[in-house]
Simulated assay, not measured.
Amino acid sequence: MKNFIKNQKGFTLVELVVVIAILGILAGLAIPRFMDATVSARGAKVAGDMRIIESAIMMQYAEKGTEPKNLQELVDNHYLAAVPEPIKGGSDFKIGDTTFTAKAGANYALTTTTNTPVRVTFDGNTIEYYLKGDTTKG
């Protein structure tokens, strides 16, 4: 019987507790990084969508000499495959070093003022607003 106990191989309780503690520490370090990655990914989507729409505006202007009146016109004229789907209202998104929160009903739109070309906005703000990290407005 003594030979049976000596030849038994396995992990001791102490070794298992140490491994579980190490895994807990690693998980505690990794989870916040993954949460920040989601916020950064939303920001990359917003910035990318705005750049794509601005490129479509420029292509229409270069080809037809007119600016679009709305996003659907860019789709109808085949400069966009579809109007980009905005992120959900209330979602945080990060562009640069600044985190913003999308308002309920936030959407992409085209705006223009006197003597300025048509610009794309998200939640009423241009891409430059987000890149500057201006949180004082809106």
Rank of each mutant, 00 (worst) to 15 (best):
K2Q: 15
G43E: 06
G96A: 07
A106V: 00
S40R: 15
V118Y: 07
E54M: 07
L16D: 00
P117S: 08
L23M: 15
I5P: 00
K103S: 14
I25D: 13
T111E: 07
D97L: 07
L131N: 06
T99Y: 01
A44F: 00
F93Q: 06
R119W: 02
A62H: 05
G133V: 05
A56K: 11
I127P: 12
G89H: 03
V75R: 03
N115A: 07
Q60I: 01
V17Y: 13
P84S: 04
K94H: 05
Y79C: 03
K88D: 10
P84L: 08
V39F: 02
I52K: 15
T101G: 05
M59D: 12
Y130F: 09
T38W: 14
T38P: 00
A37W: 15
P84I: 02
T135W: 07
K45L: 11
E128H: 01
M50G: 03
T12L: 03
K2R: 13
T101K: 15
T99I: 05
G96Q: 03
E15I: 09
Y130W: 02
N125E: 14
G90K: 12
L29Y: 13
M1A: 13
A109R: 15
V120W: 08
I5Y: 08
V39P: 02
L74Q: 01
F100Q: 05
D76K: 04
R42Q: 10
Y130R: 02
D49T: 00
F122D: 08
N70F: 05
F4T: 15
K69Q: 12
G124V: 02
F100I: 00
E128M: 00
K6Y: 13
F122I: 01
K9C: 12
T112I: 03
A37S: 10
K137C: 01
D97M: 09
S91Q: 11
I53Y: 14
F100L: 06
A21D: 08
I52D: 14
L80N: 00
T99S: 05
P117C: 03
E85T: 15
K45T: 13
N77F: 14
I95H: 02
V17N: 09
Y108D: 05
L23H: 02
S55D: 13
T126K: 00
G24C: 04
V75A: 03
G43R: 07
T126H: 01
G43A: 12
K45W: 13
T135E: 09
P117A: 08
E15Y: 12
I25L: 15
T66D: 08
L80M: 09
Q8P: 03
T111W: 00
D76L: 04
K2L: 14
R42A: 11
A44S: 12
K137A: 11
V19K: 06
Q60P: 05
E128T: 07
A47T: 07
T114A: 10
L80S: 01
I87V: 10
V19S: 08
G96L: 05
M59Y: 08
L26C: 09
M50P: 03
N107P: 00
K94Q: 11
F11D: 06
I95E: 03
K137T: 11
N70A: 11
P86N: 06
T12I: 06
G10Y: 06
V46Y: 08
G28R: 08
M58W: 09
V75G: 06
T114V: 14
T98Q: 14
T66I: 09
E67V: 04
T113E: 11
T112L: 01
G96K: 02
M59A: 09
L74W: 14
V118F: 07
T98M: 10
F122V: 01
V120M: 06
